[in-house]
Design a binder for these strands. Structure first.
Length: 554
RNA sequence: GUCCCGGUAGCUCAGUUGGAUAGAGCAACGGACUUCUAAUCCGUAGGUCGAGGGUUCGAAUCCUUCCCGGGACGCCA
């Protein structure tokens, strides 16, 4: 409906130009939106306002010209008016929206899909936590955000792949090995210190205990390199399995687990550096190789190969992202913690250097998470390795609340995660509020079944009996769902869906409290059941996108 | 010092890419259960949109200068 109106409006302008009522110009960008104020109609456009400057004419005057040229045959527009500084408001046939109920029912779990992406290949890479420990709150936010974004993009017509990059090579693995070695020797009674820069998390003690159970002291009296290699191999496998399982519990399933090590082994890193070298973006300084990030607007250059000959993680990352583009992704989206922001420009620069469009690599930076318990900030320490893990969080508040809380705020915003609120089963908890709406809907249909009634279908029902304020508000909201999907996909903002669902649930609760669904009048009853059913479908579709379950009973 | 993010109601946050009278939830206050789930609803109150300047028909939104909070500036990842 919105795009149809936009098209007709553009045509009207063209016609006015032909007739010489508006000077020749290209039609400016304008929007057809749902006005906040209901008095402003069902749709409104700012076209005349946007046209004012290029056409050198007063907005209201232009609005009049446009309205005169506007062809509205075949639309549901009943009345057009010019308002305020020059808005054109459209009032539609009061029942136009009711048709959306037919659509919702017909399309079911597909209602809300749009074809914004037109099959564009997109990859979303998220979490990619080092397999040297457990997942923390930052990873958790990334998991919720990345998975939801991927789902939303899919729903908006993109061909989406979810990927996890396993940092199973490089410096931190060396470090990991030395930490494991220390823990191993400690367990076997030796008094050795943990490396200063090592992994201090106590989870490594358990890992080493498991190792000992299998190998005992077999690696006590071998050379360090062998011992560390064996420990690392064992620990990586264990940690990665744990991460996979936790993410699975969180409802996140990846298409691809990509190993950094494979890039080292295949020679892809070396090859990529050579390519950059040939293009003149690599130079040597103090025995190290540097990438000319400054040539691409970054503040300073960056080392790709250390003076000891070992490539940095940056070198691996360049090779990795080149690999992504080689796999044919037209958009490559990464979700990173805000602490990686310094990495953004040089990564984009490196892609530009390799001949790709820097804007095809899109980075979403998310701000930090603060946990609150009993009104107090839960202190975490990276140094001591003491923090709340994702699996602990899931155990404490449940998957649904956790996923909702992580995506309900814009990534740009620092996230305050109130554990008590997430656990509370009261109306101040938005997750329960939404789920409760769904449970109530299911309950109505259980009730109907108990009374021997049958679920009506939209086309056999007279939807025009849905006329009260609550019914109309609810229908309007359902009609808006596809637009919401487009917006969320376009701005890569899953929190919009959370907000939408909360509002939808609110409108449903209002409706529920104002009108009984199962009533004596069979026409009214049937129409309301269709409305309720449609609401249930949209709630399920939305909740599915953000990875929250839609319980039938609470 | 440079760069990034934020600053909107008591609190936590939205704000449809520059639009009409700035919104929601919680907290506060006052109401509604003989009902398909009161885990709900209805109502009231609450604002110099961090501050100043600029751009224009029109600014929370854009440009600029400051202030405050968080983060990043390594041959770590």
């Amino acid at each position: 409906m919105q795009s149809q109106l936009a098209q007709r409006l553009a045509q009207a302008v063209e016609k006015a130009i032909q007739d010489g009522e508006i000077p020749p110009l290209t039609v400016p960008e304008f929007i057809v939106e749902v006005p906040r104020e209901k008095g402003h109609g069902d749709f409104a456009t700012n076209l005349a306002l946007m046209l004012a400057k290029p056409a050198k004419n007063a907005p209201r005057k232009l609005a009049e010209i446009i309205v005169n040229k506007l062809e509205l045959a075949g639309t549901s527009v009943q009345k057009v008016e010019i308002a305020g500084p020059g808005f054109i408001n459209f009032h539609l046939d009061p029942y136009w929206m009711h048709r959306v109920l037919l659509q919702v029912e017909e399309q079911g779990e597909h209602y809300g899909r749009v074809d914004l992406g037109e099959g564009t290949k997109v990859q979303v890479e998220f979490v990619s936590a080092n397999p040297t420990g457990l997942l923390h709150m930052g990873n958790a936010r990334g998991a919720a955000l990345g998975d939801s974004l991927a789902s939303i993009l899919e729903f908006a017509g993109y061909d989406v792949q979810r990927e996890y990059y396993i940092n199973d090579a490089g410096n931190q693995i060396e470090n990991f090995g030395r930490s494991l070695e220390a823990r191993y020797l400690q367990q076997l009674g030796q008094d050795v210190p943990l490396p200063e820069e090592g992994y201090h998390g106590e989870d490594l003690i358990d890992t080493v205990k498991n190792f000992i159970q299998q190998y005992q002291d077999k690696y006590l009296n071998v050379d360090g390199a062998t011992r560390r290699e064996k420990l690392v191999q064992f620990a990586l496998k264990e940690k990665l399995t744990a991460i996979k399982n936790t993410l699975l519990d969180f409802g996140v399933i990846y298409d691809v687990w990509f190993s950094e090590q494979s890039l080292h082994q295949s020679g892809a890193i070396e090859e990529t550096i050579k390519e950059l070298q040939q293009k003149g973006y690599i130079y040597e300084h103090e025995n190290a190789l540097w990438f000319k990030a400054t040539a691409f607007g970054d503040e300073k250059d960056e080392v790709v190969v250390r003076s000891n000959g070992i490539p940095t993680y940056f070198a691996a990352d360049i090779a990795y992202h080149k690999n992504k583009f080689q796999r044919g992704f037209q958009r490559v989206i990464n979700i990173w913690g805000a602490d990686h922001h310094g990495h953004v420009n040089r990564m984009k620069g490196s892609m530009e250097a390799l001949g790709y469009n820097r804007d095809s690599l899109e980075i979403i930076l998310m701000q930090l998470v603060r946990l609150l318990r009993g009104g107090e900030v839960v202190r975490m320490s990276k140094r001591t390795g003491r923090f709340v893990t994702l699996s602990e969080l899931i155990a404490e508040v449940g998957k649904d609340a956790a996923r909702y809380f992580f995506i309900m705020r814009s990534p740009d915003s620092h996230l305050e995660f109130d554990l008590d609120l997430a656990k509370s089963q009261t109306n101040d908890n938005p997750v329960f509020y939404i789920q409760y709406a769904h449970a109530r809907i299911c309950s109505i249909f259980r009730q109907l079944a108990e009374r021997g009634g049958e679920k009506p279908t939209a086309k056999e029902v007279d939807l025009k009996v849905l006329q009260n304020e609550q019914e109309i508000n609810l229908i309007r909201k359902l009609a808006h769902f596809p637009v919401e999907i487009s917006m969320a996909a376009q701005t890569m903002a899953p929190h919009r869906i959370a907000k939408y669902l909360h509002e939808l649930a609110g409108l449903f609760h209002s409706f529920y409290n104002s009108s009984r669904v199962i009533v004596d009048d069979p026409r009214l009853s049937a129409a309301r059941l269709v409305l309720v059913n449609a609401t249930g479908i949209v709630l399920r579709n939305g909740l599915r996108l953000i990875g929250v379950s839609a319980p039938e009973k609470m």
